[in-house]
Each structure stands twice: as structure tokens, then as C-alpha cells.
Design a protein around this nucleic acid. Structure first.
Lengths: 209, 209
DNA sequence: CTAACGTTTGTCCAACCGGTCAAAATTTTG
DNA sequence: CAAAATTTTGACCGGTTGGACAAACGTTAG
């Protein structure tokens, strides 16, 4: 665990934010090893040694970024609640995840990059915190199934499918836009996606008489 | 376009294959910039200058790999056929894609890496060959919908959803295994996934009376 | 055998990269 | 203001990387 939180001046707080913002841009576009400190420093409008004054190692930036990411990234799933109508809960979960793909594509790509490379830096978190959370929510979904509120299926793979389909619009954005073309690949694509996903998941999950 | 295909000796053919196999392993695990020629050479069991005798630049290896990949990668979609029962066609498309995620995860990750970085080397192909193919198949699916064989929905986003959900099991494999845990994360996970995806897509697409 | 051709390797290089350091510039504090 | 603390920078360093190259080695055809 960490010691007491380091005391920070106003400038330190501001500059650290600036660096993290720049690093998110660079890391999400080039991956960890594909990014250089110089790139991040330039994107943050400062010199390399200056940047290294705020973060002593390249890895520290990545680590800080990743820690922050995970909290916000799993927030939608955390909100999936036992109380409330199952269909409504699932619909808003899907919608929230898709909104995150639309509004925070860099965060999504940063995460995808990390997982693609074998999740070397967040493996413990995947097997710990994440697994616990998913198991917990899978139990909630199982409860809904037992109660006949939604069709029976595998809750874990259902969650994977929601992750995959929504994050696809952030991670594979260039491909999506290329395939849809100029006319359909514009801003409306997220609304089309929302409509499609809602139909796919909710019709597919509707209880059978 | 390329000039006439270069004449190659038996050794050249064998060694080039060896290098491409090694490069697939390394590139898919570390990305292009994260991989070094030395790593690839070592994985191929030869010295770096020797490797550079067969491929003059690191990029040439990646390019060759990518060209080959795309052909096999799109084969399942190409097979999606107008003749034959729509539900059966879609079911076997989904199954084939999932089998590719299981049997060729490295290829999937190589592709994902490329797209994540903005597809700098295959953009023309996405906007050309790929878009044409998808538009063509989307038309086929639209035909099925008009004929009342499957429920009406957006064919392009349907294809995206199939890509996303199946490739997820290759690209996010570590996460899937971490979340499923030791017991359910074994070899059986692909069968569970197949069963789930079939239910998700085919029930969701079943025509409504 | 030997000349020609194909293959392999050791050595080298320039560019790049992560990170250090001391000194200079700036801001904060008394 | 002046001292102290913080912030910024230029110069530098050791290690790595992509790639060049010539010399050595192996193979094959005449």
C-alpha cells in the first residue's frame, strides 16, 4: 500500500493534470511502449525533464492513469442494481456503457491496449476487484432469471457481450467509420448503435411466455 | 501495385515462413512499436542480420503479415451466402467467427492492435475492399429482412456486433479468463460462449409472428 | 576443382529513448 | 526586499533499436 498522500502545491496539481491529460492522448493512440516521454511532454507543452519532475518514471504516469481509469470505467456496472425493473436496469446499463464509448474513447482504448498486451500491470485487479464485482452482478442477474423476469442465459457471457459490443464503437472506431462511410458514419452512428443494441439485447432477453 | 512476383529459392520460402510465424507471435503480443527485430529474430532462431536478409525492413514483415491476415480474416464473411436458410447461414457465420477467435487469437490481436492505433497501414483496405464486402453482405441480410425471414434491424450494426462479441474472446482473452476464474475459464469457455451467442443473436433475430 | 551464387554472421553506426543532474529561473514566504 | 523553496531547462549519459556492410561460410553447377 501507499504511504500518506504526498502534499502538493497548486502548480503541482495543475501540471500533473495537464500531463495525465496529454499522456491519455498519447498512450491511447500508441500504446505504452509505442509512446515516448518526449511525445507526452510536447503534448503537455513542457520539456521532458520538466515532466519528469512531476512523474519520475514513464510507468508512474501510466499507473496513475490506469488507477483513475478503472474507477470510472466500472462505475456503470456498479450501478446495476438489484432493486428496480430488470429490463430497465439492463437497458440503462447498455446505454451508459455506450455513452462512455462515445464520450471517453481514449479511456476505452487505453484499457483495450492494456488487456491486449496481456494486462501485465492490472492483472491482480482483474482477478480480484473485477472478478468480485462481475460475480456479484452475475448473481443479481441470475436472481432475475430465477424469478422469471428475464430469459435464462449465462450472465457472465451476457456481461462480456455488453462490454464487447459497446466498447467496439470506441476501440474499433476507425473501422466502424470506414465501413459505414461518409453518410452513415457521422455523429448519428451512436444513436443507430444504441437502437440496434437495445433491440438485440432486450428482445433476446425477453422472457418467453 | 507490385511488380512481378520475385523468384524465390526453397530456403528463402522456408525461412520467410519461419520469420512470419515468429513475427506473428511477437507483434500480436507487443504491437508493432513494442516489438523489436531482435525479438523476432530470436523467436525465429536466427540472427538479426540474417533476418534482415529476408525482410529488409521491420515494416516489410508487418505488411506481409497484414496482407495475408486480411484474406483469411474475412473469409467467414465472404462465405455468408444468399442461398440457404438465413438463420442457418447466420448461425454458422457466428460459429466460424468464434472458431477463428479460438484457433487464431494471435491474428485477431494483430488486427485489433492495428485498428486500435488508427489503422495507419490498412486504412485504404478498410474503406475499399472491406466496406464493399460489408455493404454487399448487408444487402443480402436486408433481403432476408424484406422477405420476413429474420427480424428487421440494422445489418451493419448486426455485423459489428458479431465481430465484437466473437473477437472479444481472442482480444480480451486474459480478462475473460480472469473473470471466469479457474473453474469456468478453462477450455470449455468457448463452448459456453457459442451457446450464449447463438441464443443472443438467433432469438433476437427470430421473426415476430 | 572452382567460379558463381546464395546464406549467415560479427561489427559497426546513427538515431532514439528513458532518465540524471546541476544550474538557472521563478514563485512563495517571512 | 531577501531568503527559502519550488519549478524549469540545457546538457549529458548509458542502453537500445533499426539497419548497413563486408567478410566468411555453404552450396551448387559446370
Amino acid at each position: 500500500m501507499e504511504g500518506s498522500a504526498p502534499r502538493r502545491t497548486r502548480i503541482q496539481q495543475e501540471k500533473r493534470e495537464l500531463i495525465l491529460e496529454a499522456a491519455l492522448e498519447v498512450f491511447s493512440a500508441n500504446g505504452f511502449r509505442g509512446s515516448t516521454i518526449d511525445q507526452i511532454a510536447e503534448a503537455a507543452g513542457m520539456s521532458k525533464p520538466n515532466l519528469l519532475y512531476y512523474f519520475r518514471r514513464k510507468e508512474d504516469i501510466h499507473e496513475t492513469l490506469m488507477q483513475r481509469l478503472l474507477d470510472t470505467w466500472l462505475a456503470p456496472l456498479r450501478e446495476l442494481d438489484d432493486i428496480g425493473d430488470p429490463m430497465t436496469e439492463l437497458r440503462s446499463y447498455i446505454r451508459r456503457k455506450l455513452e462512455m464509448a462515445r464520450d471517453f474513447p481514449r479511456e476505452s482504448r487505453l484499457f483495450a491496449n492494456e488487456i491486449l498486451q496481456g494486462a501485465p500491470r492490472i492483472m491482480p485487479m482483474l482477478e480480484g476487484e473485477l472478478k468480485t464485482l462481475v460475480d456479484e452482478k452475475a448473481a443479481v442477474i441470475k436472481g432475475w432469471m430465477r424469478a422469471g423476469k428475464i430469459a435464462r442465459t449465462d450472465p457472465w457471457h451476457l456481461i462480456f457481450a455488453i462490454w464487447a459490443t459497446t466498447q467496439h464503437y470506441a476501440d474499433f472506431d476507425v473501422q466502424v467509420r470506414a465501413v459505414l462511410g461518409a453518410d452513415r458514419g457521422g455523429d448519428g452512428r451512436f444513436e443507430d448503435a444504441a437502437r440496434f443494441l437495445e433491440q438485440l439485447f432486450l428482445d433476446g432477453l425477453k422472457p418467453k411466455g
